[in-house]
Design a protein around this nucleic acid. Structure first.
Lengths: 256, 256
DNA sequence: TTTCGAAGTGTTCAATTGACACTAAGTGTT
DNA sequence: AACACTTAGTGTCAATTGAACACTTCGAAA
């Protein structure tokens, strides 16, 4: 357990990948491939997708690479939210066993920079995996014990998402191109863990101008078909609202 | 310039230390000591105080240590806001020269985790320096070219501060225990870069309940003496407003 | 006693919020 | 063909909040 002072820490990135389906927020979690596995028996934890940062890439690039390798997607909303560097991150026996198969110095400290990604989960095609042998979308309420400190990281990501959604117009990243007003409301309700009034929600969203109604409606549903909307990306400069006023109950605004 | 793949990056913390005096936001910047300096001539850049993370401390501890070594203060508002890890961070000749005096491997990459600290600058007593030979409070509008990518980090900190101040009740950390309403307003105006209406500001602040008036007033000022107020820390759970509604013009709230 | 400078104080109008219940439009069932 | 079922979609009103605005008060210094 002792680490020589001259041994620098490893630096990795981990991606907390959010998706939204069946009215729940979900995380994309993987089971890591075990090199030279002695048995097919799988007793490893689920983990956040992540990797060591290579010498010639910056942190954002490393995170984008991890995301792309796993999902095939690029150009996705991907934002750093916190670095985790507790020297005691790696204490679980299974984690240590796994690291032994991967690294020269399994005892070295790892500092990880955590990113959150927001994606339309319909777009994801899991890539046959270089570092994952299994990938699942798990509802955030059903996240099991994860590898390393990945439970802490996931919780941090969720808190960061709740906070960011109140400042930046980013929730749309989790929806398909076209979505109904109910989809959008359900998404906000899920993220904020709060019921919102339907009529007030619609009024607010429409007045804000961040979405545009399409002529198109749902087909083949056994009730009144809902209208589709699209998000106006042009109104929003890298996630920040410009003049658009999006307000949600109970939050805070600035002084006059 | 080539780095062997087995050489892990260094990991450091840097502290962007905000203070507020004479109606301006300021940063506490240092000139680093140069070990074995060949000349007394000083041509180094100002820099953010920072240090490598030691083997046995976590990131928060490292940042707190840097802050304490420089200012003698602990228990200060200190929050991680971003990690910086561009492989090309260290390109300036002066920086490379300085590193040569400090490290075995001056070419190795450094990833830094940046923290922002908010302090009452009256409390600071600069400690005779283990890693600083000079420390100054510079107005944010007058920050010169800094070492490494410290200009980027400072700008990131300022943006993070502007954002955080709208979500968390943290501005008070920059003021002394007792302050006048005008002090408080000037602080908000400085951070937000916006003029605020005096009467509306006072009303909002008082209604919010986050401050309490003291019986005490200013003495020896050549105009009407201002009342002193204190911040009610008890109403605020680790920086987040509870039921208190602090709203500022032009920002966003949530839906109903 | 006058001057100077910052502190302190209310009102009014406009805009936004939040609460609240029924009709509309389809599909599927009888 | 009528009905049941389910979700979409719609308007008003009262309360709150936001923004704009000018004069008086207090103390020190001249």
């Amino acid at each position: 357990m002792s680490v020589s002072p001259s041994l620098n820490p490893h630096v990795s990135v981990d991606c907390v990948i959010f998706g939204f389906s069946k009215e729940t927020l979900r995380l994309l979690l993987i089971k890591r491939t075990v090199p030279n596995a002695v048995t097919e028996l799988d007793d490893s934890y689920y983990a956040l997708p992540g990797d060591l940062v290579s010498d010639n890439e910056n942190l954002d690039e490393a995170a984008a690479r991890v995301l792309k390798e796993l999902t095939g997607l690029s150009g996705i909303f991907l934002q750093q939210f916190q670095a985790f560097g507790d020297p005691l991150r790696i204490t679980k026996a299974k984690d240590r066993a796994w690291l032994k198969g991967v690294r020269q110095d399994p005892d070295a400290r790892v500092i990880t920079v955590a990113y959150m990604a927001l994606i339309d989960s319909n777009k994801v095609q899991i890539q046959p995996g270089s570092f994952s042998k299994e990938a699942v979308w798990l509802p955030i309420a059903e996240i099991p014990e994860l590898a390393f400190d990945h439970n802490d990281i996931s919780e941090g990501a969720l808190m960061a998402l709740r906070e960011k959604v109140q400042i930046q117009t980013i929730a749309f990243e989790l929806l398909p191109e076209k979505f109904t007003m109910s989809d959008l409301q359900a998404l906000y309700e899920t993220i904020l863990e709060r019921d919102l009034d339907k009529r007030n929600f619609r009024r607010k969203m429409l007045n804000s101008g961040v979405i545009t109604a399409l002529p198109e409606k749902q087909h083949g549903v056994s009730n009144k078909p809902a209208r589709y909307y699209v998000f106006n990306r042009n109104l929003v400069e890298n996630g920040h609202l410009g003049f658009v006023n999006l307000k949600m109950e109970g939050s805070y605004t600035l002084f006059s």
